[in-house]
């Protein structure tokens, strides 16, 4: 069986490499280089950056939004440009961020398989588990990059186009610009953590197929389905188990005092998804016949 031979050689290479060490860092570096050299990655980051720009420009052209209409925080933007980043992340998180994460996570293994490069990766000094870990780290790095793009571009655009000043939080308290920037970074961290479970699902789906588009679409669709289920009151018992459940919980970081309950619950939930789907991906990938 051709698969058996590849598996055997990959295993022996991995044991040899474990002794030499340092291979993981090299592999991770090359994975990140490949990921962030791709034109597609930059196109997706560019699309994410467009969200805050479009919001800010629309408000400049059309005037301030009335209180209580449109996404939350939208009406605050004309008073304070720092809300551009928050509004953009709120707009991006239901669809645009999951779409891009789905593309990256769904592509991890299936993309290599479709290019016929997976078997070479496994012949090169890399064990299967290590390859999975590195691929997952790459997807996680994209989560960080995507979230930061939205928040940082949003803040910069807001800074350019609108007045900047002390920020009114949800609790009605007012904090300084510096404090607000720290909170924006905390929001980026919250959203990044929120996307890690989904990345693990994408990684697993990616090990199931050699057609990357299938894994990408399935991952993005799962995110949408999960959000729809989260909106159905009849399924209340299920809600705390959905990986999208805490996605909008980042608003807790805009309270005074800051509420960390959602952050912690979210981190535990995402870790659960990571463990389950990571283990599934390992099980699948270790037993998979790599033919391409």
């Amino acid at each position: 069986m051709p698969g058996e031979t590849v598996e055997a050689s990959a295993g022996s290479v991995a044991t040899r490499d474990a002794r030499t060490g340092g291979g993981t860092a090299w592999l991770l570096g090359s994975e990140l280089l490949t990921l962030f050299r791709r034109r597609r990655t930059w196109a997706m980051l560019g699309a994410l950056a467009l969200i805050p720009i479009l919001i800010a420009v629309a408000i400049i052209i059309a005037g301030p939004a009335p209180t209580g209409r449109g996404p939350a925080f939208l009406s605050e933007i004309t008073n304070n440009g720092l809300f551009v980043g928050v509004t953009a992340i709120l707009v991006a998180i239901p669809l645009f961020l999951p779409l891009t994460i789905g593309v990256v996570a769904g592509d991890t293994i299936a993309g290599e398989a479709s290019h016929g490069t997976l078997r070479y990766l496994l012949i090169a000094p890399a064990g299967r588990i290590r390859l999975l870990l590195v691929k997952y780290a790459g997807a996680a790095a994209f989560c960080v990059a995507g979230t930061l793009t939205v928040v940082v571009v949003g803040t910069l655009v807001g800074w350019l186009l609108f007045p900047i000043g002390p920020v009114t939080l949800l609790s009605g308290a007012t904090v300084s610009v510096g404090d607000a920037l720290v909170r924006l970074l905390a929001i980026a961290a919250f959203v990044t953590v929120s996307l890690l479970g989904m990345s693990a699902i994408g990684l697993f789906l990616s090990t199931l197929t050699t057609v990357p588009v299938g894994a990408m679409a399935a991952t993005a669709i799962l995110a949408v389905v999960s959000q729809i289920l989260d909106a159905l009151p009849q399924l209340e018992w299920l809600h705390p188990w959905l990986f999208t459940h805490y996605w909008l919980g980042f608003a807790d970081l805009l309270r005074e005092p800051m509420v960390w309950d959602n952050f912690i619950d979210n981190a535990v939930l995402q870790a659960g998804y990571l463990v389950v789907f990571g283990a599934l991906a390992i099980g699948r990938f270790l037993t998979k016949d790599v033919l391409s």
Binding site: V275, A279, L280, G283, T287
Partner: peptide, 12 residues
Amino acid sequence: RWIPAIAAPIAI
């Protein structure tokens, strides 16, 4: 090799 995949959900 499927053991971790079975054990993780059970443990959780």
